[in-house]
């Protein structure tokens, strides 16, 4: 076990554990906090993969902005009291089974023999650095980048349409 592996497994356990807590916590605020923890773990994974830019952007965008909005909404809606009514137990059971099946099927399908030896580069390879990503983004991916502005515009208009009081 190298230090990389230790970190990998630590982050993995943290990510999956927190993710499980997200869906099992009864209090939505706890769910949000555990989701943030998951994001932290995933950011850790990114750093292990030397994708520093994404790691930080993940923190800023997801943990720093998106989850704050979630917290906002949850707190303003005062959902801290346990207001989520019990879903039909069997439905829950079925949902869990379905998800588990998905997991099993996908794992079975993707456990390809010829990829056993394939590895992802850790801690090296500088494509994940800001400079390189930025160059690719603004050279190769300039069109989608500009187009995504349309997406934002529409989301902005949407927030106005839905949020503004008549």
């Amino acid at each position: 076990m190298s230090i990389t592996q230790i970190l990998f497994w630590f982050l993995t356990v943290m990510a999956i554990g927190s993710a499980l807590m997200v869906i099992t916590s009864r209090n939505p605020v706890y769910s949000v906090l555990f989701l943030i923890a998951t994001f932290f773990a995933i950011s850790g994974h990114y750093i292990l993969l030397n994708a520093q830019f994404l790691a930080i952007v993940n923190l800023i965008v997801y943990a720093g902005a998106i989850m704050v909005l979630f917290l906002f909404v949850i707190m303003l809606m005062n959902l801290n009291t346990e207001t989520e009514p019990q879903k039909n137990k069997w439905l829950k059971f079925a949902g869990t089974i379905a998800g588990g099946c998905l997991l099993l099927v996908m794992v079975a399908a993707l456990r390809d023999a010829d990829t056993k030896t394939t590895t992802a580069l850790m801690k090296e390879g500088d494509i994940g650095l800001v400079q390189n990503l930025g160059k690719t983004l603004f050279k190769e991916y300039v069109v989608p980048f500009e187009i995504s502005s349309v997406l934002f515009l529409s989301a902005m208009v949407g927030a106005v349409v839905l949020g503004k009081k008549d």
Partner: peptide, 15 residues
């Protein structure tokens, strides 16, 4: 995939 499946389970089970 584990994370993805957990997400799916959450979508299916929570209200």
């Amino acid at each position: 995939i584990a994370l993805f499946s957990i997400g799916v389970i959450g979508v299916l089970t929570r209200r």
